[in-house]
Write a protein that binds this DNA or RNA. Sequence first.
DNA 1: GCCAACGTTGGC
DNA 2: GCCAACGTTGGC
Length: 150
Amino acid sequence: MAYWLMKSEPDVYSIDDLKKDKREPWDGIRNYQVRNMFRDQMKIGDLAFFYHSNCKPPAVAGIMSIASKAYPDATQFDPKSRYFDGKSDPENPRWLLVDVKYKRKLKREITLSELKEHKKLQDFRLNQRGNRLSVIPVTKKEWNLILNLE
DNA sequence: GCCAACGTTGGC
DNA sequence: GCCAACGTTGGC
């Protein structure tokens, strides 16, 4: 089983929204590296941190599981959506997504600055500068270290 | 609001 | 295929 961290801006979609919805398509990904991770690496049952980005403070807020295989993101064909992509061919959709399922909120949020301070997380992808991927792989070791901060 | 990092686009 | 211009992400 693999572990992930997935970013979302809480103003747009937060862990509390997912708690309410229980299960939701993780739509709007328009980055090929992330699409390929969805397609090639994510498996049903994988676990992912729900990370609140672009907010104060940025932090890991909860845990969810991957609930589907990758399938086409419907928003790419919806002209009203901000994620619309007119160049995507319905016969061969460019953008994929996975469904995620709410598991739980962390007992407390673990902030980015805490993660940065952690000696054993210096190599963690989220802590490296210029990291702009909205979905990043997490090793089992990193996963456990982060959960231990809870 | 600023800006560093980095992906994408398009002219050549 | 190169690379300048531009757009986006996201911490600060």
